[in-house]
Write a protein that binds this DNA or RNA. Structure first.
Lengths: 111, 111
DNA sequence: GACATGTGCAACCGTTTGGTTGCATACTCT
DNA sequence: AGAGTATGCAACCAAACGGTTGCACATGTC
């Protein structure tokens, strides 16, 4: 059961957890307080997120602080990059189209 | 069973389909040729992608051409935006740290 | 040492997922 | 009209998912 970053962010609860600990590191108990599921369910999500290396943990006494591994978010960004170039080129196409239309408009105005 | 874009891209086969039809519109049969699963399995993936509005279809006779709805990819980009600001600020922090180190180094050199 | 607290793990359970096969429907061509 | 092709849909199935409860194991505090 090899999981990747895309499966990690597929679940809305996990995205919420990511958003939570992005601001500051938190313990599982504190995180669980923000949801209406059991502490153990949250713990399972944390396990999955850790498996995908989206979060890292730091032990402080008997408490464990979970923190976002922001570099992992970049992987999504890198994956998106290929499509970003596409939608930018689409805009270029739109730009040239608009330019052509304007030129045509000008011609019509000249007549 | 309301699905969102994040569930759409969670499956590797679906990401491959997205990458395929990003280049040019394709029929289900043509798409299925690129995978070692059945045509019907691919059809199911297309159904999910269409449900999430990641792809759009165009009927041409008895063939249906599926094409990527690139604007939907932007939604992921927008979601990433909040984290992009974080990792950029991290870099700023790193920059100031490096600057401080360099300054300290200079001090040491002065002694 | 005794007790409370923070956490993870295992077992279980209903639902969803991703795949298969078989069949129905719609369009094209002769 | 009949044959062939492109596609979607339904039924089924094993595996994974997301949740629960109970328990074990550390680490603190008295």
């Amino acid at each position: 059961m090899k999981r990747d970053i895309f499966q990690a962010i597929a679940d809305p609860t996990r995205r919420a957890i990511i958003a939570l600990i992005a601001i500051q590191a938190m313990t599982p108990n504190t995180i669980a307080e923000h949801f209406d599921t059991s502490r153990q369910a949250v713990s399972k999500h944390l396990r999955i997120l850790a498996e995908c290396e989206v979060i890292k943990q730091e032990q402080k006494g008997r408490e464990i602080y979970y923190q976002l591994e922001i570099s992992k978010m970049k992987e999504i960004d890198e994956w998106l990059e290929q499509y970003r170039t596409i939608w930018e080129s689409r805009y270029e196409q739109l730009d040239t189209l608009l330019a052509e239309l304007k030129q045509q408009e000008n011609k019509e105005l000249k007549i």
